[in-house]
Amino acid sequence: MFKKLALGCVVALLTILLLLIAVDRYISHQVAGMWSRDINQVEPMPVALVFGTSKYVGKRLNTFYQFRIEAAAKLYQQHKVDALILSGDNATRYYNEPITMLNDLLRMDIPRKHIALDYAGFRTLDSVIRAQQVFGQQRVLLVSQQFHVERALYIAKVKGLDARGFVVDDAPRKFHWRVRLREVLARVKALIDLHIFKASPHFLGEPEQVEFRIPEALKE
Rank of each mutant, 00 (worst) to 15 (best):
L142V: 14
R130Y: 06
G121Q: 09
L141P: 02
V128Q: 11
G136C: 13
R139H: 01
V128F: 10
F122T: 08
Q132A: 15
V134D: 00
I115D: 04
I129E: 11
R112K: 15
L117A: 06
V143D: 00
Q137E: 14
A116R: 12
F135W: 04
V128K: 09
F122G: 03
P111C: 12
P111G: 13
R123C: 05
I115V: 10
A116G: 08
I115G: 05
T124M: 02
A116H: 11
V134Q: 12
G136T: 13
A120C: 10
V134K: 07
Q137N: 08
Q132V: 11
T124E: 03
V140F: 09
L142E: 04
V143N: 01
D126K: 13
D126H: 15
K113V: 08
D118L: 06
L141R: 00
H114M: 00
F135R: 04
V134P: 06
V128C: 07
I115N: 02
L117Q: 11
K113H: 14
Q133E: 13
Q138S: 14
I110R: 06
A131R: 09
L141V: 00
G121F: 04
R130P: 04
L117S: 12
V140E: 06
P111M: 11
H114C: 01
I115R: 04
Q133I: 00
Y119C: 13
P111N: 14
R112E: 14
P111E: 12
D126E: 15
A116V: 14
F122H: 11
R130H: 11
Q137T: 05
V143Y: 03
Q132N: 15
V143R: 05
K113Y: 03
A120N: 10
Q132F: 11
I115W: 03
A116S: 15
A120V: 03
T124N: 01
I129W: 10
V143Q: 02
L125Q: 03
I129H: 04
L117C: 12
V140K: 05
V140Q: 05
V128E: 08
D118W: 11
R123T: 05
Q138L: 01
D118K: 09
V134R: 12
R112M: 07
I129P: 03
R130Q: 13
L141M: 00
G121E: 08
I110N: 13
V134S: 09
R123E: 14
F135K: 06
G121L: 08
F122M: 13
A131V: 12
Y119F: 15
I129Y: 10
R123F: 07
I115Y: 06
V134F: 12
Q132H: 15
R112W: 03
Q138W: 01
V128N: 13
I110L: 12
I110Q: 14
H114T: 01
D118A: 09
Q132Y: 13
L125I: 10
R112A: 15
Q138M: 00
V140H: 06
F135Y: 09
L141C: 03
F122R: 06
L142S: 00
L141H: 01
T124W: 02
Q138C: 01
R139A: 02
Q138G: 12
R112P: 02
T124L: 02
L125E: 07
R123D: 15
Q137W: 05
F122S: 06
R123L: 07
I129C: 06
